[in-house]
Simulated scan of single mutants.
Amino acid sequence: MVMQEQRVAVVTGGSRGIGRATAILLGARGHAVAVGFSGSADAAREVVETITAAGGRAMPVQADVADENAVAAAFDTAEKEFGGVDVVVNSAGRMGLSPIADLDLSVLDDLYRTNIRGTFVVAREAARRVRDGGAIVNLSTSVLGLQFPQYGAYAASKGAVEAMTLILARELRGRDITVNAVAPGPTATELFFEGKDEATIERLAKQPPLERLGTPEDIAEVVTFLAGPAGHWVNGQVLRANGGIA
């Protein structure tokens, strides 16, 4: 009997929110997981401990996603520790809310650096490293279709993520690697709650026909589906996981 090699996942932004839930779920589904983080070392270690306590394999890897040398080093570490990379989840992200007319351009620059350059750097490294049969999943946002005021800069950055996702899927023809994006709706993460009052949160929670906020675990299930064999016929798509918001 031939033993199947364990699949290996690199999850950026893996220390909190959707990235954390995704790392834990991938670990539970049998992946060895490199939990990517930038500044939250303690939180990343807690995710690793959660995975290993359940019998999985995991390790923290630190990298600023916009720094190509740090990202390459993180992939080197994952390959050395686990033998290769099969799944890359681009979950690291930044949000900034402001009407476009009032936007501090330093906020735009920060969003660009993390959400666009960071996603591009990680996706570029993934395209070079992911083994045949693997998957790349980027995180976008359903705000692109909802046109919420104050989300102009954030939505613009995620529009770039969707564009690079669809193009990379076609550039990897012949490698049996899927590239997709998941676009969550309002989801109960620290990033979502930041800067919002209770009335705004309640209004957003009531928008989906399911009448609640999504959870990080809801989104992690979608990401994990796309990362695994069951989702491998889905390629070059943006999946809007938002509870039915139009």
Rank of each mutant, 00 (worst) to 15 (best):
V65N: 08
G19T: 13
D110N: 14
G96N: 08
S142Y: 01
A135G: 09
D76G: 04
E202L: 12
D218Y: 10
V61M: 03
L204I: 04
A163K: 05
E171A: 12
A183G: 10
A156G: 14
P184V: 05
G244L: 06
V2Q: 11
Q147V: 09
R124N: 07
R240M: 05
A41E: 15
T187K: 07
P208D: 12
R173Y: 10
G13V: 09
E46M: 02
E211W: 02
V35S: 02
D197K: 06
K206H: 08
A155F: 03
A156Y: 06
L25Y: 07
V10G: 01
R203M: 11
G195N: 12
A188H: 04
S140H: 09
R212H: 12
V87C: 03
G228C: 13
R124P: 00
V35G: 02
S98M: 03
E217C: 00
R57W: 01
A72D: 11
V223L: 12
N115I: 14
V130Y: 02
D76V: 01
G133W: 06
I24D: 02
V33K: 13
E49M: 02
I18S: 05
G39T: 15
K196A: 00
T77G: 00
A160P: 11
N180M: 03
V137M: 02
A63W: 06
A66E: 07
P99I: 00
G243D: 03
V238I: 15
F120Y: 13
H232R: 15
N90P: 05
Y151D: 04
A34V: 11
G39M: 04
R57K: 13
R129T: 15
D76N: 11
D76C: 00
A21L: 03
G56I: 09
G56D: 03
A53G: 10
A188Y: 00
A169P: 08
V223C: 03
T189A: 04
G27T: 14
A78Y: 07
D197W: 10
L97S: 08
L166D: 04
S15K: 06
P229Q: 08
A54H: 10
D110Y: 04
G19K: 07
T224Y: 03
G30P: 05
A163T: 15
Q237S: 11
